[in-house]
Each structure stands twice: as structure tokens, then as C-alpha cells.
């Protein structure tokens, strides 16, 4: 009750032109209003903006002579702040944004799916090495390997195209892989990215 009396007194003094009264009012309630806004938005910058907008509205309303909530200054200011918080969330739901902070940066989770320059070079090198290794294989094994791995054909299809049985196609694939492994070992090639 005493505080309400004091507030209404300060408001009256402000309306009479005493700017110092506003400073007292702001300083008196800043912590509660700021805390209230922060408890809703959890962001210091947004809180600062809403706090500022709240008091701009308070100042405008007071200067226009439209304040009539005798003795209930703080609840009135809190209500203004609450409306501005709602406006903030409405705006953000229309245009959601995500901001990182010191503890969590979105860029650590959202990586660039593309390879970086170094990995791109390694990938090209691996592909070139692999091509030359495949070229070393006997023709029949080469055929099966290319059809299976690069053309994604089934062994049934490979068998039909090459005119051999499925078992022969499977055997050629097996030997192609064994021979590739031998070639990799022999040439000391690293085929990893």
C-alpha cells in the first residue's frame, strides 16, 4: 500500500514535469520488470529491447495523459511488458530464428555437407588410383566388377550379359576383389578418405 502510494506520488510528480521522478520509478522497478521479461524470453538482448519498448510506451502514455490506473503502476508496467513479450513471440513464430550462444553454436551441428578442398583432392586421388587398379585386372573380372559396383546390376543380369552362369559371375567378382586387395597391398596404396 505504501509502495503504491509512493508510486502514484512519483507518477504525479512526473506528470507535473519532474523528470527525476521517472528516473526514480525506473530504477525502483527495473529489476523486477527486467527479471520478468528475462524469465519469458531468456535472452539478454531481447530483454533489453523489450524493457526499453515497455518504458517508451509508459512514457508516451503518461505524457499523453492517458494513465489512469491510480496506484497500480508496477502491475500496469508488467502488463505492458507482457504484451510486448507476446508480440515478440508472435513475430518470431512467423519468422523463427535460431541464435547460438557461447555454450552452443549451431554451426557445430550443422556442418557443410560438401567435402572441403583437401578431402575433395583425396577423393579424386582415390578414384584415380582405383581406376588404374581396376584396369590391371583381367578383362573378365573387370567387366563383372564394373557391372556390379558401378552399374548396380544383379549377378543374374551380369551372367546374362556376359553369357556365363551366375556362379561364374560370382567367382569372377570374388577373384576381382581378391586381386584388387593384392594390388593395393603390392602398390602400397591407401584407399581411404
Amino acid at each position: 500500500m505504501d509502495q503504491q502510494l509512493q508510486d502514484s506520488c512519483l507518477v504525479k510528480r512526473y506528470l507535473d514535469g519532474d523528470e527525476k521522478a521517472l528516473e526514480v520509478l525506473i530504477n525502483k522497478h527495473s529489476q523486477r520488470i527486467y527479471g520478468f521479461i528475462y524469465s519469458k524470453v531468456y535472452d539478454r538482448d531481447v530483454t533489453e529491447d523489450i524493457f526499453q519498448d515497455t518504458f517508451i510506451k509508459v512514457i508516451k502514455t503518461l505524457k499523453r495523459g492517458k494513465y489512469n490506473e491510480e496506484g497500480k503502476f508496477l502491475p500496469w508496467v508488467i502488463r505492458i511488458a507482457q504484451n510486448l513479450v507476446i508480440d515478440h513471440f508472435r513475430r518470431n513464430s512467423r519468422m523463427p530464428k535460431f541464435e547460438g550462444n557461447d555454450e552452443f553454436n549451431i554451426l557445430t551441428v550443422l556442418g557443410d555437407p560438401g567435402l572441403n578442398a583437401e578431402k575433395q583432392i583425396i577423393k579424386e586421388q582415390v578414384e584415380t588410383d582405383l581406376k588404374s587398379l581396376v584396369a590391371e585386372l583381367p578383362q573378365d573380372q573387370q567387366e563383372v566388377l564394373i557391372m556390379r559396383l558401378y552399374k548396380d546390376m544383379s549377378f543374374k543380369e551380369i551372367a546374362a550379359v556376359t553369357g556365363v552362369s551366375i556362379n561364374t559371375a560370382l567367382g569372377r567378382m570374388r577373384y576381382a576383389i581378391i586381386n584388387l586387395r593384392k594390388l593395393v597391398k603390392k602398390n602400397n596404396i591407401i584407399l581411404t578418405n
Partner: peptide
């Protein structure tokens, strides 16, 4: 939790 001094100053100047 307190507003920045600059914010208060701005409001008083405003």
C-alpha cells in the same frame, strides 16, 4: 538481472 545503464539513460533522454 538489471538493464544496462545505457538503456536507462536512453529512456530518460527520450
Amino acid at each position: 538481472l538489471k538493464p544496462r545503464k545505457e538503456t536507462i539513460r536512453f529512456l530518460l533522454d527520450y
